[in-house]
Write a protein that binds this DNA or RNA. Structure first.
Lengths: 205, 205
DNA sequence: TCGTGTCTTTACCAAATGGTAAAAATTGCC
DNA sequence: GGCAATTTTTACCATTTGGTAAAGACACGA
């Protein structure tokens, strides 16, 4: 049994847990927690349902594992924000990294969005322990930049919200964006340019 | 049977259909389509499950009815954008109306977000028939303003996306916003001020 | 190659869920 | 009040779904 705090996961164990988590990310991000079924995950992973339950205690554990893994990836671009860098370039770099993530990891973005949309029932603790301290810390950094006169003064909290909202929008609302931008061959480039302009005009002292 | 194209819905029919739709809006916006159950809707409406099915053909019809009703409300602020008004004031007014809607109709915002997040399986037609023409029309209006020199030039499509993203964020990601802004007594006012600043700096010629 | 521990399958199950049939109650019109 | 039409309840049902038990297949070190 691969339960609990085992010492060494076998080759097979590592491969199958990976297959399952990747399949589950697909299914959960497409249908939401309750909309996803173990059968769908099993089929997508190419394993039988009882076999899935050999590697994970249940549907919820798979979801929680995914959310835990996601948290690190998700916060990384903000962690990278360097208090000693050039303020405007740091912010614009952050915007760009978030936008790239929306393009490269849309499943992760939607998984996260779905969880928050439903009130973060399985992630509220993470928000308080992981996100909140980081958020407060980076708000302080930005506020210091503004007080130094290196950036125009705005509420750093709403600034960060607007960065999250505008970048993640391209992943989370992709179905809508696709309809409205149907024949644009360079959606990503257009978004990148627009957002760089917007945040530059907002923040240039 | 209240099926099909009846002539006049009775008093009871109007009241109960209203109760059901309001309850369903609650439940669907909280748990998503597949996460919502008829039993939950029935209990929230104060009716029995078979009674619910007397008024609606099934779960899907309730959801679709809700989505249809929502579409009009949802697009209204954009419809109101007046080509003959003052360009910057029109845009800022639009932002404000959208932000007010996020505050006053969070259930509707989340219902919409959930539907799009999952690929708009029950709303794709609406997007093409209702949203797309309106979007194109208003993009043209904004582009004309820019060519006239009344607004700084940016891509109107991404401009609209950024307005949607930043305003709806406060409803759709409320669980997150609440954690991060825990003790702010004036979240709405702060957001309004921030967004007005941002779009003014972006668009003022 | 043999045996032990790891992995996979087969055959289930109980609960939840969307939905139905038909009887019972109620409403509203004459 | 009487009666037809509307509304509501009771009693079900079939399917789906998360999960389990236990037998069987397989890997791998001695």
């Amino acid at each position: 049994m691969p339960d609990g705090a085992d010492k060494k996961p076998s080759r097979i164990q590592q491969r199958n847990r990976g297959l399952i988590l990747d399949a589950a990310l697909d299914v959960f991000s497409k249908h939401g927690y309750r909309g996803a079924t173990l059968d769908q995950i099993a089929e997508a992973a190419g394993l039988s349902k009882p076999n899935i339950l050999y590697y994970f205690d249940g549907k919820e554990e798979i979801h929680v594992t995914l959310l835990n893994q996601l948290m690190e990836t998700w916060l990384d671009p903000l962690v990278t924000l360097d208090p000693d860098g050039d303020p405007l370039q740091e912010i614009l770099g952050y915007v760009q990294r978030k936008l790239d993530m929306a393009r490269d990891l849309p499943r992760e973005s939607r998984l996260f969005a779905g969880e928050i949309l439903q009130g973060a029932p399985r992630m509220a603790p993470h928000l308080v322990t992981d996100l909140q301290p980081l958020f407060d810390e980076k708000c302080a950094v930005i506020r210091a930049w503004m007080e130094k006169g290196a950036l125009a003064t705005v509420d750093p909290r709403h600034l960060i919200f607007s960065i999250w909202a505008t970048t993640q929008h391209y992943a989370d609302f992709d179905a809508q964006v696709q309809v409205l931008l149907r024949d644009d061959p360079d959606r990503h480039g257009g978004a990148a340019e627009y957002l760089a302009t917007m945040f530059t005009k907002l923040l240039r002292p």
